[in-house]
Design a protein around this nucleic acid. Structure first.
Lengths: 344, 344
DNA sequence: CCGTATGATGCATGCGCATGCAACATTGAT
DNA sequence: ATCAATGTTGCATGCGCATGCATCATACGG
C-alpha cells in the first residue's frame, strides 16, 4: 500500500548489475549482452518492475531537442454523435497500436479547445489530434514553437501551421444537390448543423451552388446543433408550414434521423413519397432497415489511417511541414429518396 | 522549432527571483508574497511559460508516498455503443472538472485489459476506471500494492480489492419479466449480450427467476454481442420459427433496436401487436418517435457522479477500503409493449 | 605473444520541479 | 530599545531514468 515503488535500482540490486544495465535491458537498441538482459528481466519479473514512463520522459528532455512523453493529446467534441464516437474508438486504437498513449480531453464548445491544449502541453504531449474543432492562431503558434504537431480532423485551417484531414464538404453538398435535382425535386431545404461551423457551411455552399446552377434556389433553411433533438425540431418547423419542402438535406445523419422520425411518426408523412431526405456521414444507423437513409459516406477508415500516418510522421520528423488531405465522399443511395426517373 | 523549452529557471531569471519562487508562485498553497507572485506571473506570461507536469510528477515521487501524475486511466470497451459513448463523455467531463487528466485506453476484448493496465501503470496514473470489463486478480493485486484505486463501472468483482458502480442487473431483469407477465405474454424470449459476461447473465437470471415464479419458463434464448447487427440476427432467428415468441427482452437497447428494425421492416411484424419488446439502458434512441422502446433505465448521471466521487475519495485517501455501489433501474414504458389489461 | 578493435559494463550526470532548511526581513509586544 | 514570532526567500537536493564517457573483458590478426 504505502510500500515504496520498485525502481530500476531495486532490480539492479537483485540482478547484481548496475542501474544502467537495467535501463539498457529495457531499451531494445541498447548495447547489452543477452545474458545480462535475461538476468535483469528475471529480476524485474520477480519484483514486478515496470519502467517509469514519467521518469523516462524526464530523461528524454536531456537528450532530445524536445521532451517526449509518448502521449498524444486527443481533443474531442460531440462524442455523443455516433460518427465521432466511432472515430474516437478507431483513432485511439490506431494510435495505441503505434505505441503512443492517448491523453483525452472532451470539450463541449469551441472556446474550450485552447484551454484544453494548454493543459495538454503541460504534459509534454508529442502531438495532438483535434476532432471537429479548431484552435486559435495564438495556440497554433505556441504548438508550432514547441514543435508539437497538430492535426485537425474534420476541419481545416489553411492559414495556420497545422495539418488537417477532412472530407470534401463542398463536393459532398454538390453530390446531394445533384441527386435531388435529378430526382425532380422543386422545394429543397437544408438543415445546418451550426452556422458558425465551416463543416456545415461548406456542405451548404456546395449544395446551394448546384441548386443555383440548376436554376433553383434554397426553398427553406433551418439550423440545428447536430443532435437528433435539433433535427426533430427543424423537421417540425419545416413541415408545419403551408407549403412544404419536397426534399431535405441535413448536415449530419443524426439530424436527418431526427427529421425522419418526426416526419414519419409524428407528422405521418411518407418518406420518400412526401419528401426525400439526405444525410451526411453515413453512420451505421443510416442503414438500419427502418431508416434506409440516403447519405454522403465518409471514407472513415482511410481518413483515420491518414490522420494517424500524418501525425506519426510529423512526430518523428519535427521539421516536416504541415499537410492537408481531403477525401471525397460517396453518395450512398437508400430508400429515403425519390429516385431520378431514368437511372439507378 | 528546436528552441529550448521554457523552464522555471528562465522565468526566475526574467523576474529576478529564484527558481523556488517560480515554483511557489504556481502552487496555491505555498508561502509567497503577493508582490513576488505577481512579478513571477508577469514574467511567465511574457515567456509563455507553463509548468511541466511531468517534472512536477517526478518531484512528487520525492514527497509523497507514491508518485502522482494527475492522470486517471480510463479503460473502455464497446465505445460504439451509445450507452458507453455517453458514459465516456460524461465521465471524462466530470474527472476533468475535478482537475485530473484522462489517459484513455480502448480495448476490444477482456483479455486486453491487463495489458492496458500495465501500460497505464507505467505512467503512474493516480487511479483507474474500467468501463464494462474486469481485471485479473493478479492485476488487481498489483494495483492494490501500488496504491492505485480501481473502479469497475458496469461490472463488479466482490472478491477483488476494487470498487465498483453498477446497475442492479438482476433486479432490472425482474422488472422486465414482471411487466411482460402482467401483460399476459406466454412465449417469452431473451437475447443475451455475451454469455461470458456477468452483466448479461445477471439480467437473464433475474428475468428467468420471475418467469419461473410465475410458472413460466423461457421460451427461447439467443445470444448476440451487444451490437445492432447481432440483435437483428437474433431477431431473424427468433421469428423464423414456426412458433414465434410474443415477447422479447434484450440485454441492451442497441440489440433491441436490431430486433425492432428487422421485425418491423424486414419481417413485417407489428410491434407490439405481434410481440412486445423490452431493452436495457434506455439510450436516447429508445425514445425516438419511430422506436418507442420500453427499456430499463439506468440512472446514468447519478452513477457517473458516484463513480467520480468514489474514485476521487480513494485517490485522496489511499487507505480507504473499496466501495461497491448498486443502483436500481427503472422501467420506462413506451409503445413497444402490449400493456397489462388493468394498469398504467 | 602483443596490439588493436569490438563489445559490455559501471559511473556520473542532468532532465524540471517542489520542498526542507537556514537565513533574513518585518512586525508587534514588552 | 529588545526580543520573539511570523512571513518570505534562496540554496541545495533528489525524484527515476537514459546516456556520454571511461574502463574493462574478450577476440582476433599479425
Amino acid at each position: 500500500m504505502d510500500r515504496k515503488a520498485i525502481t530500476s535500482y531495486d532490480v539492479a540490486r537483485l540482478a547484481g548489475v548496475s542501474q544502467s544495465a537495467v535501463s539498457r535491458a529495457f531499451s531494445p537498441e541498447a548495447s547489452i549482452s543477452e545474458a545480462t538482459r535475461a538476468r535483469v528481466m528475471n529480476a524485474a519479473r520477480e519484483l514486478g518492475y515496470q519502467p517509469n514512463a514519467i521518469a523516462r520522459s524526464m530523461s528524454s528532455a536531456r537528450n532530445e531537442p524536445q521532451q517526449k512523453s509518448g502521449m498524444v493529446g486527443l481533443i474531442v467534441t460531440r462524442m455523443q454523435d455516433p460518427f465521432f464516437a466511432n472515430t474516437v474508438a478507431e483513432l485511439s486504437r490506431n494510435i495505441q497500436a503505434k505505441g503512443w498513449q492517448i491523453l483525452l480531453f472532451t470539450v463541449e464548445s469551441q472556446e474550450e479547445v485552447d484551454a484544453a491544449l494548454t493543459t495538454l502541453m503541460r504534459y509534454k504531449i508529442d502531438g495532438v489530434v483535434i476532432l471537429s474543432a479548431i484552435l486559435s492562431g495564438r495556440m497554433a503558434a505556441a504548438c508550432h514553437a514547441s514543435g508539437i504537431p497538430v492535426i485537425l480532423y474534420n476541419r481545416s485551417a489553411a492559414e495556420l501551421p497545422v495539418s488537417s484531414v477532412q472530407i470534401e464538404n463542398r463536393e459532398g453538398g454538390r453530390l446531394a444537390a445533384d441527386f435531388l435535382i435529378e430526382g425532380g425535386h422543386e422545394r429543397i431545404a437544408f438543415v445546418a448543423g451550426d452556422d458558425a461551423d465551416s463543416t456545415s457551411r461548406l456542405r451548404e455552399e456546395g449544395f446551394v451552388e448546384r441548386l443555383v446552377t440548376a436554376g433553383k434556389k434554397l426553398f427553406l433553411r433551418e439550423t440545428g446543433d447536430y443532435t437528433f433533438v435539433s433535427g426533430r425540431e427543424a423537421g417540425l418547423r419545416l413541415f408545419s408550414r403551408q407549403e412544404r419542402p419536397d426534399a431535405v438535406f441535413c448536415a449530419s445523419d443524426v439530424m436527418s434521423l431526427g427529421v425522419l422520425h418526426t416526419a414519419r411518426h409524428e407528422l405521418n408523412l411518407d418518406v420518400p413519397r412526401d419528401f426525400s431526405l439526405i444525410g451526411f456521414d453515413d453512420i451505421p444507423a443510416a442503414d438500419w432497415p427502418g431508416h434506409q437513409l440516403t447519405s454522403i459516406r465518409q471514407p472513415v477508415h482511410r481518413m483515420i489511417r491518414e490522420a494517424t500516418d500524418i501525425l506519426i510522421e510529423m512526430m518523428e520528423n519535427p521539421d516536416r511541414s504541415p499537410r492537408t488531405r481531403r477525401f471525397s465522399g460517396t453518395l450512398i443511395v437508400r430508400g429515403s429518396c425519390r429516385l431520378p426517373a431514368k437511372a439507378v
